[in-house]
Design a protein around this nucleic acid. Structure first.
Lengths: 191, 191
DNA sequence: CTCAATCCATACGCATGCGTATTGACAGCA
DNA sequence: TGCTGTCAATACGCATGCGTATGGATTGAG
């Protein structure tokens, strides 16, 4: 685990994957080009094709890495909160706070053309909606209502990301943002 | 206004624009290529560059056309409903029914990289959110709450489109879909 | 010190897709 | 009938970006 890749001359596959995710976060999946990445890392294509079979291969493993490192931490933390309603509120608040980690997610929303991105996002979406539905279920909702509410809440999340990160709809001030989050919690968390 | 372009030999700019929107709806903005379109229309590039200066020019006018023809009808119809709450419910239900017209919108959500798409979507988003905020205001909400609720509702709309049209998250049956819409209305329309 | 494995540079081939240049076909009109 | 404007076909140039081929440099093991 080398800290943020000091500039030792030789690279590893993981370095390429991290750089790829960084580039995706900044400019989207479409901007992920081999020579662009190479320039960023101070090498040439020659290096890349030693570590990876193809551009697709890099994208594939990078996305895999993102899925692994992504949400485990957050969900694990939130899962320890005993009160069901409090757990949902806290989940919403924490998700609202972490704007940075969502940059890649927002970029992937713009790449739902791509054959590698689609199944990944399907998995992630399903897992998260299941988590939400389970949480809602524990607040006393019946099965159907919990699933509908989970879908609604996750749609609101996805749409919000789309509007704020991909569009730059008139930026919310910090106060407005906090107020919005509380409004959402009031509207989507029962009682 | 020729009905769905009968195959007269000569084409007009409007034909290209319609075909462009059709292609965008099916395969996204990225798939909008000059020669692809030409093949569809049974001609070659030579024709295209008589009608348009460039690919960007076509995309630009096609998007303009979409914005014009898009939402005016729906919003005008809904705007005639006197009761504020009933107006919101009806808006939600009608939007829910029209799945087809949203295909282009969903495609544009995947193209929020593109310099022509971004400002267009900003305009459309802002206009629709203002409409929603106004409607919520008329149900008795204060200004801030109405804007937050409008943002939430529109985010839910965008996210839902993204999940259903761009992802193909486990398709909802017709009954489930209807139930979901009613759940959303219950959650997002006051009283 | 030598050798082999690892990592990278350089130079190329190739496909795609935009845009241009030139010529051709066909209409209506004089 | 000939002319002109409109629409289209063909052939090309050019840029981008992927992938390959081949050789050079560095490192660690023996």
């Amino acid at each position: 685990m080398t800290a943020t890749r000091p500039d030792r001359a030789r690279l590893t596959a993981a370095d390429w994957e991290h750089a790829a995710l960084e580039l995706i976060a900044e400019q989207g999946v479409g901007a992920l080009a081999v020579e662009t990445l190479a320039r960023r890392l101070g090498v040439t294509k020659g290096s890349f094709y030693w570590h990876f079979r193809s551009r697709e291969a890099l994208l594939s493993t990078a996305l895999e890495r993102w899925e692994d490192e992504g949400e485990r931490v957050l969900l694990a933390q939130v899962d320890t909160i005993p009160q069901p309603r409090e757990r949902l509120c806290e989940l919403f608040r924490r998700v609202a706070r972490e704007v940075q980690p969502h940059r890649i997610y927002a970029a992937l929303l713009k790449a739902l053309d791509h054959p590698l991105v689609i199944p990944l996002m399907q998995k992630v979406t399903q897992r998260r909606m299941d988590f939400l539905a389970h949480a809602y279920r524990q607040t006393g909702m019946d099965r159907a209502a919990a699933q509908h509410r989970a879908r609604l809440a996750y749609a609101a999340y996805v749409g919000f990301l789309q509007m704020n990160l991909n569009l730059s709809v008139p930026r919310l001030s910090h106060e407005e943002y906090e107020a919005y989050v509380e409004h959402v919690i009031a509207a989507l968390v029962p009682d």
